[in-house]
Design a protein around this nucleic acid. Sequence first.
DNA 1: ATTCTGACGTGGG
DNA 2: CCCCACGCCAGAA
Length: 110
Amino acid sequence: MTTDNTNFFQKVYEVAKRIPYGRVTSYGAIAKYLGAARSARMVGWAMNGSHNMPDVPAHRVVNKIGLLTGKHHFDGTTLMQQLLESEGIEVIDNQIVNFEKHFWDPGKEL
DNA sequence: ATTCTGACGTGGG
DNA sequence: CCCCACGCCAGAA
């Protein structure tokens, strides 16, 4: 952790925290908002350390197609889905229904 | 130091 | 529509 490289992770957490209730976004959208559109993977990597951040709803962050690709990183296998359903988001087979409807673009609405 | 993999995305066949 | 390959950066073996 040098000094500015952590800033990237911090920014990811910041954006994630700003995701409204019952809304979801994609790694690429966040990456793009941060200026690292080509490094969408880093966003997911940043989420890896999001466990240290209390208010970082990683469950609201999915891939571009609305698939719960990272659910395996949660405590259980259905935890992520349960959290989303708890917010009124319908999830079937790790796939968010009406993803576009729940999608929240940081660069657009933020 | 080198190699692989990974919570992604886009493009081409 | 499905499958394959490339780019990106960072961390682990």
